[in-house]
Design a protein around this nucleic acid. Structure first.
Length: 315
RNA sequence: CGCGGGGUAGAGCAGUUCGGUAGCUCGUCGGGCUCAUAACCCGGAGGUCGAGGGUUCAAGUCCCUCCCCCGCAA
């Protein structure tokens, strides 16, 4: 099968590798253009590009695929296009090019969690089950007909990053099975129940700012859901502190945001709306991530007595 | 050349302004106290101060070069 692969970040790599491993003829890979990244504004290739080049697959990096790549795609004459976290919207004109169609690997149980960050949102919303879906891409945002779907349990304490790694592999397997069934003409194809759809927006940096009015359970889900990017943070004495890991702990005293415990032995405990968040792992500006107890050894934080030291209260 | 913080004992930090015996908290090892401890007391071990070069009687500290880690921004 002549396949054109479209994907950008790590999530797409297992799918691309699976296609190659299965002996499909991957004739091209499309990814987002290289962008200045990291500290020194160095240009960096995305994971899918690196993978494609390693397998001698031609790489295309249009800024806007709809405008630049229609002729290229036609010339490639694919039987099938496969997308996995590509990052650009395909036009109908492009969707009409592949003989069979365009299959998208989406990391949620559609129609739930449409949008660009389904894994993060599933964790943020406190789900215990999510999954991957293969679908026939249509013009809408993750609205196409569902082909195959697989449920995956979200493990306790699992972060979005960890879950992404797992779903990427599971998604690759599902993709291979989907293509197998498409080739035989036995692949189911059912429209989404649009009544049950949910859509969540792209993640923004600001979403990582902890609102201590929220219940501890929700804050912990957010910490997990935004890890490793964009990360969760709060302010202590005017300095930003990233929170990498935390757990809910029962607490009835104090006001939201109060530091109930800050001890290099006991650790760091911050009051939330309901209950409190035990901060296990954090990271100060310029520092590396470390256990809260280690941090407190060298950075003593005063315990808020709830109604004094108002200026020390973090936001 | 995008902005910025940092590398000192196993861990987390202070010390660098203004050169002059390597410090703190914790851990660890040994001893003591206690019905008891994430408690307390006494004692010990453990450091090429990221690397190299330079200045100096003397460099963690001043000068030059390099390596590594991290936050912002994108």
């Amino acid at each position: 099968m002549r396949i054109v692969f479209l994907g950008t970040p790590d999530f797409g790599v297992p799918s691309l590798e699976a296609l190659i491993r299965e002996g499909h003829e991957v004739v091209a890979a499309f990814t987002q253009p290289d962008r200045p990244k990291g500290r020194g504004k160095k240009m960096e290739s995305c994971p899918v590009k690196v993978c494609a080049l390693a397998h001698d697959i031609p790489v295309y990096q249009p800024v806007k695929i709809r405008q630049e790549s229609v002729e290229d795609l036609k010339a490639l004459a694919p039987d099938l296009c496969v997308t996995a976290a590509f990052g650009q919207i395909l036009s109908q004109e492009i969707l009409d090019i592949p003989r069979i169609g365009t299959v998208n690997v989406h990391s949620s149980l559609l129609p739930k969690y449409r949008g660009s960050s389904p894994i993060n949102w599933a964790v943020i919303c406190g789900e215990t089950v999510t999954g991957v879906t293969t679908m026939m891409t249509d013009k809408g945002m993750d609205t196409g007909d569902i082909l195959l779907q697989k449920e995956v349990e979200i493990l306790p304490g699992e972060t979005a990053g960890e879950l992404t790694d797992r779903l990427a592999v599971i998604g690759a397997d599902l993709l291979i099975e989907t293509i197998r069934q498409l080739e035989k003409g036995i692949c189911p194809r059912v429209p989404q129940d649009h009544e049950k759809m949910s859509y969540y927006p792209m993640l923004k940096k600001e979403m990582g700012l902890v609102d201590w009015q929220m219940d501890a359970h929700d804050i912990v889900c957010r910490i997990r859901g935004l890890s490793p990017w964009p990360g969760t943070y709060t302010f202590v004495k005017g300095e930003m502190l990233k929170i990498w890991q935390g757990m809910e702990e029962e607490a009835t005293t104090g006001l939201p945001g109060d530091i109930l415990e800050a001890d290099s032995k006991k650790g760091l405990l911050v009051k939330a709306g309901k209950n409190a968040v035990r901060v296990h792992e954090l990271q100060a500006q310029g520092g590396k991530r470390m256990k809260a107890t280690d941090y407190l050894r060298g950075h003593p934080i005063t315990v808020n007595a709830c109604d004094k030291n108002e200026e020390m209260r973090h936001e």
